[in-house]
Design a protein around this nucleic acid. Structure first.
Lengths: 220, 220
DNA sequence: ATATTCCAGATCGTATACGGTATGTGATGC
DNA sequence: GCATCACATACCGTATACGATCTGGAATAT
């Protein structure tokens, strides 16, 4: 007899609940996560909430301070740079590994996303643009056969969820160049370029965005 | 008035306690972690133990099953391959980033470690050899200025702590080649080779070990 | 006015308690 | 014998309780 008790634990439920809200930017960086309040909101006790928070802490989505509490990770500017640099490495590798499994449809989808981004350049909306940017990159590495690398890349993107909305608001000049570089990457893939070349193209693309951000910061 | 209450929470204490035992191979993969037993052992209640376990779970050191309990992560063979592949990418990048900060002393230390490994080839001890191997690689990327990448590389190594002891027992032929490749890497660094070349040397070195392992597995 | 002390409310950290779920064992029926 | 069921046991999941710590602001001193 199979008992399909799909009920997941309250601890996991809470984990998902908080995570969704952080990634969905309902809880912004710095947002204070009061354990008792969350517990009451979900109609449960604090114990499962604490467990959920510990997991999110280990993933870097939350920062926790003893006797003070939890807040959504701040990702200050240095950390932003570090995270983006790491993400460039991971995503480049993930994309290269995904190449043999990539279908025509995948490429077409990525192309369509980038076309939307180009169309948006005229009437620039940083938030929507940044969102499409994420979709584009995820489309490239989603077929990565190494789940471990994919997960780390996912976490990297999630970690920056709070800043993502504003990335291209900070460095709007990057937007048109970014679209061009996306086209370059797609072209390389279509032409069956060396995986290493593609990997480095993805990495450098990301690193250039960081560089633009860094310069913007120091000059202002 | 500054009150230096260095006392860390029991939750953190437990986290460290378990983690040390996993990394120190006192708790081997598959080892059952009974929450109540650990709590009693440490003279505390189960609540902090559960929090510690959740963090370790998120780091991939522990696997948790609802209503069954926690055990040290098994890292089956596929996961071993995935983890090593990822680690190759991360460690290569971390090493390349560390290059500008590497001192003569760092290089000398790495060289000394590799010399010990070479000396051990005659009278081969897989466990000691694998341990030195880890030290060698950590020595190379320890100066990495990006803490985020370093942490991920650290976690990769830790994740395999259970298998590490046996890696070179599985593929003993790899040992002499490994030592040679270490020398190559050190030479490249001394000659101020391109960072990318060094990065790829580190990556390929690790990937070749995986490849040797994979072949060993399919042929047996 | 500024710095310091004290206090109350908010929130955290952990112990304890108890019901729920999985698992192994022995009894029962075939 | 072998399969099935009932039950005991071990362990997990969560609620509740309470002391400990932090925080902000009012009261007081300089």
């Amino acid at each position: 007899m199979i008992r399909i008790d799909e009920r997941i634990s309250k601890s996991e439920l809470t984990y998902d609940w908080i995570r969704e809200r952080i990634i969905g930017r309902e809880f912004n960086p710095g947002y204070r996560l009061v354990l008792g309040a969350i517990a009451k909101e979900l109609g449960i006790s604090v114990v499962p909430v604490r467990e959920a928070v510990r997991r999110l802490e280990a993933e870097g989505l939350i920062e926790f301070e003893r006797n003070v509490g939890a807040r959504v990770a701040m990702v200050n500017q240095d950390e932003y740079i570090d995270t983006m640099q790491t993400l460039g490495v991971l995503e480049g590798a993930a994309t290269a590994l995904a190449l043999p499994l990539m279908t025509e449809a995948d490429l077409a989808r990525a192309q369509a996303i980038n076309d939307s981004m180009r169309a948006m350049l005229e009437d620039f909306d940083p938030v929507a643009f940044t969102s499409l940017n994420e979709k584009f990159h995820r489309a490239l590495f989603q077929r990565c056969p190494n789940p471990h690398i994919s997960e780390l890349a996912d976490r990297g993107w999630n970690r920056m969820s709070g800043l993502r909305s504003s990335t291209f608001a900070f460095v709007p000049d990057r937007a048109p160049r970014s679209v061009m570089e996306h086209d370059d990457i797609l072209r390389l893939i279509r032409e069956n370029a060396e995986p290493l070349e593609i990997e480095l193209a993805v990495r450098e693309h990301k690193w250039r965005t960081v560089e633009a951000y860094r310069q913007q910061r120091t000059s202002s």
